[in-house]
Design a protein around this nucleic acid. Structure first.
Lengths: 183, 183
DNA sequence: GTAGACATGTAATCTGTTACATGATTCG
DNA sequence: CGAATCATGTAACAGATTACATGTCTAC
């Protein structure tokens, strides 16, 4: 049982889903390819943490919809009560920034301009989903920023993503300003 | 040649260092164990990107000090001119947050309190190094936030780290406030 | 008709972690 | 005398990516 396995249990516990669906849901918060997810789901099913039903679809290929078992729920509870490991960040830009002095002036600036664009795309996505949740919340007795709202977890994560992107953009812009002093 | 390999080239290009030293320098920005670094350095040396001299020390064990070759410098230049890949983040807290509704109330709050402590420790470290650089900068013709200062890369990275930690702490505190509404 | 989304899988390879292994020196 | 830091390495394993493989349906 690794972190990705628990992550899948968590997603499935909220909403039974297919492997393809889980891959898409997970994407913004934990990068994993389908080639890693499908075998893991099969293993979790064999070991009794998950079960699946094959859903026949006429318009699309059939899919396996996984749902969590009692054993899975217990494992999830235990994992949630343990302290979270420190995050791992692997960002090529960080390593390149370290030796910025060796880079061509234009290349250096381009790096940060490109990162700003990447961040803005992610930011737009996060903000789009935040608006969606806020619109959905009209039907619920609790607003989306209330811990009893079923989408509370997603909501605070989306706001985490948006905050991070804004902060990274601000940093890149600050670096670009400093780089112009060189001229 | 992978990202870590270029990262090592970059560090060595700035200051010839031993594997042990590289491991420590790299730690805050790219997590890699010595068991990954030593074989990589040997490979980079065999392929002519790096060379080393064995330094005899009386007070400590001998060490291999690596420096960059011309071939290494060219490879580094090429890498620096290519666009940086998008960052990969693997944070267990993110996955746990996703299924916050399933967690025990106390466990949920504890998660964020612990993360705040982790972030504060990192923040203290970043700020400590920032102050060191600012103190060192007295001897230099350029202030540390000028792109021609030799430690410019480190300086802006440290400020990136500090910004991120502050932002994460603020987010955790916001979540803790929301969680108290549950009571 | 072809590109893209939906849907699931396996195999080969690369990357990264944990554990095994050794040994000197310093500080409490 | 034991723990921590400095110093370098290998082996086994786990985690993750890329490539291989297949097939349907929809929209342009």
């Amino acid at each position: 049982m690794n972190t990705l396995a628990y992550g899948l249990l968590g997603l499935v516990a909220r909403t039974p889903s297919s492997g393809y669906d889980l891959m898409l849901q997970l994407q913004p918060f934990w990068q994993a390819k389908h080639s890693q997810i499908y075998p893991l789901l099969a293993k979790l099913e064999q070991e009794g943490y998950l079960e699946f039903t094959r859903i026949h679809q006429t318009d699309r290929p059939d899919k396996k919809v996984y749902s969590i078992t009692e054993k899975g729920q217990i494992a999830l509870q235990v994992w949630l009560s343990e302290p979270a490991a420190e995050p791992v960040v692997r960002d090529e830009l960080v390593l390149k920034t370290y030796c910025l002095g060796l880079a061509d002036e234009n290349a250096a600036a381009t790096m940060f301009v490109e990162r700003i664009q990447q961040c803005r795309e992610h930011l737009d996505m996060y903000e789009h989903y935040i608006q969606e949740y806020q619109a959905d919340a009209v039907d619920h007795p609790h607003p989306p920023d209330h811990p009893d709202h079923p989408a509370f977890g997603e909501y605070i994560l989306l706001s985490w993503g948006a905050r991070r992107m804004k902060e990274d953009i601000a940093w890149c812009e600050w670096v670009l300003e400093l780089l112009q002093k060189r001229r």
